[in-house]
């Protein structure tokens, strides 16, 4: 996904794209939960609250797209980091291709077809 400095995507888009966005962030290396949330915020997805983020990470892990490990800490139970698996890398590539195709479909000039006439593009007589 390209950078989106200062860009805040609409909430509905963010919700739909969040799993892919998580895979994309993890492509850059293992992250713990809070750092993942701040990087998602930096990419315009808003900072997901913990109540949304960790259950989603759990589902991605159940699907085998990411894996988590606990890193021992100096005190207490340590910190859990999440990383992309090989299956996750393949899934990310596939989803990125699908998103690219969607963007292409959205940004192409609309072609309209009427029952009583040929296909027209844009205003009549004008080029694309």
């Amino acid at each position: 996904m390209g950078s989106a400095a200062g860009q805040q995507w609409p909430a509905a888009w963010s919700r739909t794209a969040l799993p892919t966005a998580i895979l994309a962030v993890l492509r850059g290396g293992p992250r713990h939960g809070y750092r993942l949330a701040t990087e998602l915020e930096g990419r315009g997805f808003g900072r997901p609250r913990g109540g949304s983020l960790y259950p989603l990470l759990g589902r991605l892990e159940e699907d085998g797209l990411i894996a988590s490990t606990w890193e021992p800490g100096q005190t207490g139970p340590g910190r859990r980091t999440y990383r992309l698996t090989a299956q996750g890398t393949a899934q990310l590539a596939q989803e990125r291709a699908q998103w690219a195709a969607l963007v292409t479909a959205l940004t192409a000039d609309a072609a309209t077809e009427h029952d009583d006439g040929p296909v027209t593009t844009g205003a009549q007589g004008e080029g694309p």
């Binding site: 809070y34 949330a37 609250r49 913990g50 109540g51 960790y54 207490g76 139970p77 340590g78």
Partner: peptide, 23 residues
Amino acid sequence: DRAVHEALTHAQQSSNLAVEEFG
């Protein structure tokens, strides 16, 4: 214990209460 620790750490870093961050 780890899940509790992870949630509290996340809440502290976000400067939010755990009930606000996790419901």
